[in-house]
Design a protein around this nucleic acid. Structure first.
Lengths: 219, 219
DNA sequence: ATCATTTTTTAGATGGGTCTAAATTTTTAT
DNA sequence: ATAAAAATTTAGACCCATCTAAAAAATGAT
């Protein structure tokens, strides 16, 4: 069995591997986990001993198949719980991360499976991130910046590039959130701002600056 | 903030105080928590330092108002989650304890409150135990043994006196479980066995031995 | 009342996860 | 190529929750 801490390390390694190509560094992990490099080194030795990571001193770290399996399962649970919180308990999508950070460590395969079924085997969480299925497979749809979309195209908001509270709050006030379906009605040449239609009715005008920070999947 | 372990100690003290009158002993706690007396003593000193318990060496322990509040809140969360697991995820009522032992430690007042609302502000968990409300108040209905009920009386199964897997399995097979409404149709003098009606239709014959281990609330 | 038994506490140690400070290795700059 | 800087690891410590073994207090039996 793996402790909460071990699971959090594996999850962090997984996420850092996604971005950077090549191994994950000690300092990157320390920053991601709000801890010190020395603590990271200690934990890496432990995870290495458990065959959950490939670790070479002064070089970096990556996941073994076993380690990736643990990480993906934690991510699966995190995203299922986030969706539960938003869809069933009506939390706002920007409120659920902290709580899901705790729920993701609950151990019960049966629970995870039943939660998945209760939610209708969803493919995406409230932030638009894909939910791994119970075999660890992830639908990884191509994601674009809203600012790159063409006139008269359709898309679904899948997430944000800027996670700052200020931007999330702005989105909320504008009435935009993950899962929302958009049509790019027009793009103003002058300032590259966008004329959008939300759903089938609401018209929204969005600056290029804002559109650059919104991630979408094409429809 | 209190650790999982601290919460489990407080919960155990609360439950032992309910049964025994007078203070809870170190050995009783050690047995309840599957640990050693020495470990219990250490933790009692710590909880005492936090003003969560009243502790006197070689004598025993009870809860302060603050400690009781924590314990009751943990119990509230445990029972809400158990009900969620049974009612929404369709676990059997005898499968949920382990999972709820983990879920009860999730920290978020808002989550607990929303879960409560999602479940319709329930008064009892799937085992028939009362769920404390968000102010810590517990409906403590008078509970009787089914074997003590009179002919032609009505009651609701609220729990069991015998928690052995064998008995729980027997109940399941007989079609009885917490929340079930019963009418005592007749009591056979000869062996004190009972003729019951479950709901409005199903007839059940139950031995005195079994009836002695079923807890009910009068209707 | 006193001695044996039981219960509880203390003392000292361990493993998990963290830290600071110092040492070591790698990278970068000149 | 070598010195300075940066990144990483080691060494030694701490707190938490636990343990075993031994000491101390309470209880019980005669």
């Amino acid at each position: 069995m793996n402790s909460f801490t071990e699971e959090n390390y594996l999850k962090a390694i997984y996420k850092l591997l996604e971005g950077n190509h090549g191994p994950v560094t000690t300092n990157a992990l320390a920053e991601a986990l709000l801890t010190r490099a020395a603590s990271v080194t200690d934990m890496l030795k432990k995870l290495s001993g458990k065959k959950l990571i490939h670790y070479r001193r002064y070089y970096g770290v990556s996941l073994t198949a076993a380690g990736r399996k643990v990480a993906v399962n934690v991510i699966r649970k995190h995203r299922l719980w986030e969706l539960f919180l938003v869809e069933k308990l009506h939390f706002r999508w920007d409120e659920v991360h902290e709580i899901a950070e705790q729920l993701e460590h609950i151990i019960s395969e049966e629970l995870t499976y039943r939660l998945d079924r209760f939610l209708g085997y969803p493919k995406f969480d409230p932030h638009g991130d894909p939910i791994p299925d119970r075999n660890g497979r992830i639908v990884q749809p191509r994601v674009f910046l809203l600012s790159e979309m063409e006139r008269k195209s359709y898309c679904v908001i899948s997430g944000v590039a800027d996670h700052s509270p200020a931007f999330l709050h702005f989105l909320d006030k504008t009435g935009l959130g993950p899962g929302d379906e958009l049509k790019v009605e027009d793009i103003i040449e002058y300032d590259r701002s966008m004329q959008l239609v939300l759903g089938r009715k609401k018209k929204i005008h969005l600056s290029y600056e804002a559109a650059k920070n919104i991630l979408v999947r094409k429809k």
